[in-house]
């Protein structure tokens, strides 16, 4: 009896090890790699775009990044905001109507029959001063909500899935990135990830920047020192 127990737990241990190895290998395989092939669009003339508005300065920077984009190309747009961050949602609305006013006076394009933008709320992974014991539960809720937006909802209608996701920090950007990796892991369509480090970061990366760097397709900084001795990190002057 003891023998079978022992062999069962040995087998279970091997099985767990095998699963961990396969998962790790799969994640390794889907990590972004530098590519020299220039991408050209074949199928679609428009590109669905997602952007995370991380509150305060992060939101202002994200909106500045979007401000020069051609919205007849980047449509529909999805804004992700943290729960309770009403100010960022308001800024997104104001920004969209400002852009709409610009295009109305400049172009003769008809209105897009689809809704040109949406604002989605993500529960916070951890509130300020929240106890460490309850953090895993709120973090899980946050991850599940991102998986709903990025993985599940697009199964019903691909139109909902951004083709590119712009991240500028802070923490909740990592949660969105986890959901994108669920898609990649399962071989589903997933947005390209572009991380733009904040203008405030001169000599050191932010925590979300450090965490996300290996996982994003483009990592862009706004001060030259940050690109030094960091392969793959791009610097092209101030972007905001």
């Amino acid at each position: 009896m003891q023998d079978t127990n022992a062999s069962f737990s040995t087998r279970a241990a091997w099985a767990v090890l095998a699963v961990i190895t396969i998962v790790a290998l799969r994640i390794y395989c889907i990590l972004p790699r530098p590519s020299v092939v220039k991408r050209t669009r074949r199928r679609k003339l428009t590109c669905a775009l997602g952007v995370f508005l991380g509150s305060g300065g992060h939101t202002s920077e994200a909106i500045a990044l979007m401000s020069a984009l051609d919205f007849s190309r980047y449509t529909p747009r999805t804004y992700f905001v943290s729960e309770g961050d009403i100010l960022s949602a308001k800024k997104a609305l104001a920004f969209e109507s400002e852009k709409a006013a610009q295009t109305d006076s400049h172009s003769t394009l008809g209105t897009d029959p689809r809704s040109p933008y949406g604002i989605f709320t993500i529960p916070r992974a951890r509130r300020v001063h929240q106890s460490l014991f309850t953090t895993p539960f709120t973090a899980l809720r946050s991850v599940l909500s991102c998986i709903y937006y990025i993985t599940l909802a697009p199964l019903a209608s691909q139109d909902n899935l951004p083709e590119v996701l712009i991240l500028n920090g802070p923490g909740t950007a990592c949660v969105l990135c986890v959901a994108v990796y669920v898609n990649k892991f399962l071989g589903l369509a997933s947005p390209r990830l572009i991380y733009v480090e904040s203008f405030a970061r001169v000599g050191s990366l932010s925590l979300s920047g450090k965490l996300l760097r290996p996982f994003v397709d483009r990592f862009i900084v706004q001060w030259p020192d940050l690109a030094k001795e960091r392969p793959g990190v791009e610097y092209r002057g101030w972007l905001v």
């Binding site: 590109c47 500045a64 051609d70 572009i194």
Partner: peptide, 20 residues
């Protein structure tokens, strides 16, 4: 202070998403 140059990020994104 230099003015805002919106075209920098626009060019990077257009290039990344294949809008030549």
């Amino acid at each position: 202070f230099p003015p805002f140059v919106g075209s920098r990020f626009k060019e990077m994104l257009d290039d990344e998403m294949g809008f030549a």
